[in-house]
């Protein structure tokens, strides 16, 4: 087996094990830690796809910032140990059934397509970003290329996303703060 392929399977296994762990674990804190594992696995896959900046951001933002938020929330909400009672268990069997069906269909199609495309240049290739030519300059490296694309080609969605984050903040404040007394 090629080393690249070996590591791909290894990291993928880490991602899947982490994701399953998130769902299966009873304690929220254990779920959170498995999520961290999954995030790190995804970051490794990004490195393999030569998207180094995205990998670094994945570690910093998701494995770092988002995880800290999750842990804080778990600490503040102080979830009691889950009792043994199960909820939603009637949905478990159909959900698993549909999940596997979906996995079979989509997974089968993706694998099939990947076989057909083997050896051909992919339609979308993150590695190509590293040597983008913009105007008269050749952009060197992933970070610079992502910066170019993000703040030039995708400037408008980027700004809309900033409005989106503002809305998230307003929403958190509105739903979180205490209500004023009624006046009529």
């Amino acid at each position: 087996m090629e080393p690249g392929l070996f590591f791909f399977w290894l990291f993928s296994a880490v991602v899947v094990v982490g994701a399953v762990g998130v769902v299966v674990m009873r304690q929220p804190i254990h779920s959170a830690l498995f999520l961290l594992l999954s995030f790190l696995g995804v970051a490794c896959l990004y490195v393999q796809a030569r998207a180094e900046l995205v990998a670094a951001v994945q570690v910093l933002v998701y494995a770092g910032g988002v995880m800290v938020l999750f842990l804080y929330t778990i600490m503040l909400v102080n979830v009691k140990r889950q009792r043994t009672e199960r909820y939603l268990h009637r949905q478990a069997v159909p959900a698993l059934g549909f999940g596997f069906l979906f996995l079979l269909v989509v997974g089968g199609v993706v694998v099939n397509e990947a076989r057909a495309l083997a050896g051909k240049a992919p339609a979308a290739d993150p590695a190509a970003l590293a040597t983008t030519v913009i105007g008269s300059e050749t952009v060197l490296g992933n970070t610079q290329a992502v910066g170019w694309v993000l703040y030039r080609d995708y400037l408008l969605p980027f700004e809309i996303a900033s409005l989106f984050l503002l809305v998230a903040m307003i929403g958190a404040v509105v739903l979180g703060k205490r209500t004023m007394e009624r006046f009529d």
């Binding site: 408008l156 969605p157 809309i160 996303a161 409005l163 989106f164 809305v167 929403g171 509105v174």
Partner: peptide, 21 residues
Amino acid sequence: HLVSIYVALELMALSQYVLAG
């Protein structure tokens, strides 16, 4: 463009989740 459409969709939807509650 699918990216601008998606981001705008989320801007709409997130405000609505808050309005619903």
